[in-house]
Design a protein around this nucleic acid. Structure first.
Lengths: 211, 211
DNA sequence: TGTACATCAGTGAACGCGCGTTCACTGATGTAC
DNA sequence: TGTACATCAGTGAACGCGCGTTCACTGATGTAC
């Protein structure tokens, strides 16, 4: 890459980081201003247009990045679980991996969580697609684990969706919590996920009793 | 109440309704403007100050209203369940009640959902408190139901929190969905809640096996 | 290697706009006698 | 009931401010020969 192109992509990155930094304060993406973002990146407002047509385009780029990071997270969790062997702590390992990821990508995650119910249809759809992707992959894993243990699991996709919903819900709380509170959230989350999995196994084994 | 005071409270209501109406479009509360709200309410911008010191005060009033509505919802669901007798469909009845409420108070619910992860610490704390209140009440009910049926239920509070998280997560999706999709979401939600409850009963009966 | 020209990331001035807030006001409603 | 005065919800003009966007520019980097 030419040094001019390198410089350009560095600046582009600086703009994205500036936007993420603003999100870490109590800001929704929709309340960001182009001038603030460029100011934080140390650029003139007009320079923004050399990189993005508007803030929404920058936002969608960040959502894409969040999606990529989520998939990395899943892969890493899977690798760790396999490495550990099946010592029955797949859930705990996944949660640990998730929480580590949360620490390292807090602002990216904040964007996903905040705009999932946020401003624009466009954003919401994109984020929903990323989350759905995670749930689908998880469903495949759950099916595989259940089969490997010779267990029946009712509705693996629903189990996965419920788990993802719970993880994201706790994740939102964990974002600005102290390390101590985060530990408590991990314990709670672990029990909640167990309940879902156990219930699904029961339903898979004994059929859908009314509750 | 004097007619002057009545008129004043009508205007106050009009401002709150105008803000809620704006939220129904793709707007987060933080992106509302005082001028837009007063314009929609048919008032001069300056009139706003006769009713609220700023938009945040109006917002907190709406959050309070959302909390009241949530409690009404719980009471209504409980009444219906009792009326139906225990035909084993307590979950279905609760979900139906919730979805009806969602329809009737869409904008209020949107505010709660959107600002739960949203702008200000102040808002988030207030909304979290309302949701926690719901979970606590639900935990009491769950404990009672379980006792009535002579079952053990592990961690009723966690079960309640997981259920509330799932209901709110699906609620967010249901908000702008078609009637058809909403039916699907209800079915999914019902199964997910069953899983949690069944799993908790298993854990209550057989102890906390590792998963 | 040296020279002449093209590209293009970043700039600074300028624009019109909607914003929140202030202020002194108006006139209907409420109150005291 | 009638009169004089007080209250106060709602107003319109005005303010300074930060915003997004346009435009013509600069000067370093890249390219052709």
């Amino acid at each position: 890459m030419s040094s001019r192109a390198e410089q350009k992509s560095r600046t582009r990155r600086a703009l994205m980081d500036a936007a993420l930094a603003q999100l870490s304060a109590d800001r929704s993406f929709g309340s960001l201003s182009l001038r603030e973002v460029t100011r934080q990146a140390g650029l003139a407002p007009t320079s923004f247009y050399r990189h993005f047509t508007d803030l929404d385009e920058l936002g969608m780029t960040l959502v894409d990045e969040g999606g990529v990071a989520l998939r990395q997270l899943m892969r890493q969790a899977r690798r760790r679980i396999v490495r550990n062997g099946d010592d029955g702590s797949a859930i705990a390992t996944s949660i640990d991996t998730f929480m580590e990821y949360l620490q390292g990508n807090a602002n990216l995650f904040r964007l996903m969580l905040r705009e999932r119910t946020g401003l624009s249809e466009h954003f919401r759809t994109a984020i929903k697609a990323e989350i759905d992707h995670v749930a689908t992959e998880l469903a495949v894993d759950l099916r595989r684990f259940a089969a490997a243990e010779g267990r029946r699991l009712a509705e693996p996709k629903l189990v996965a969706e419920a788990m993802v919903a719970l993880v994201f819900s706790q994740g939102a709380e964990a974002l600005d919590a102290s390390a101590e509170i985060q530990e408590q959230l991990k314990v709670k989350l672990k029990i909640e996920l167990r309940m879902v999995l156990l219930g699904a196994q029961e339903m898979g084994t004994k059929g859908y009793d009314k509750v």
